[in-house]
Amino acid sequence: MSSREYRERAEAIRTAIESNPETVDIDELADLLVSESREARRTAFEAYRTLVSDRPTVADGVGARLESHLTDDAADVRERAALTAAAFADDHPDVVDGLVPALRSVGTDPAEPGREAAIVAIAKLAHTRPASIAPAVDALVAICDDPISAPASARAERGGPAGRSDAAAALQPEREQRDQARLHAIAALTLLAADDPAAVRSAAPSIASLLEDDHRLIRAGACEVLEDLATAYPASVEPFASELAERVATDTKHPVPWRAADALVALDAERPECVGEAVAPFANDLSRFLESSDVDRRRAGVALVADAALARPESLESIRPTLRDLLSDDDASVRMNAVIALGTAGTESDRSTVADLADSDPDERVRETATRVCGRFDGALDSE
Rank of each mutant, 00 (worst) to 15 (best):
D145A: 15
E116Q: 11
A198D: 15
D361A: 02
A187P: 06
H69T: 01
E238S: 10
E291F: 00
L326M: 00
S360P: 04
T252E: 08
G159Y: 01
W258R: 14
F88K: 00
V141I: 14
P110F: 01
D97Y: 10
A86G: 10
L264T: 09
I143K: 04
R271L: 04
F45K: 11
L32S: 05
L171F: 03
I13V: 10
I133R: 03
D361E: 02
V100A: 00
G163N: 15
G346H: 05
S68F: 03
Y6V: 08
L264Q: 03
A220L: 14
E67Q: 08
E46K: 12
L310V: 07
S35C: 14
I218Q: 11
V237K: 09
L189K: 15
P257Y: 04
P281N: 09
D262I: 07
D27P: 02
V137N: 12
H92Y: 10
R312N: 12
S165E: 12
D25G: 07
A380I: 06
P93F: 06
A187T: 15
A102L: 03
D138I: 00
A332D: 10
E246C: 09
E212K: 14
A241H: 11
V24A: 04
S153F: 05
Y48T: 01
E176F: 06
A162Q: 13
A117T: 03
R7F: 02
A170L: 13
A181Q: 13
P197K: 03
I218M: 14
A230S: 13
I218A: 11
L192C: 12
I122C: 07
R247A: 13
I186H: 10
A306M: 05
R365T: 09
L264W: 05
H92R: 01
H69K: 03
G163M: 06
E11R: 14
A309W: 06
A89G: 02
R115F: 05
A152G: 07
D268Q: 08
P362V: 01
S149Q: 09
L66M: 10
L210Y: 13
R41L: 05
S19V: 15
E243P: 06
L264S: 00
R129H: 14
T128Y: 05
D350N: 09
I122T: 01
L226F: 10
V302E: 09
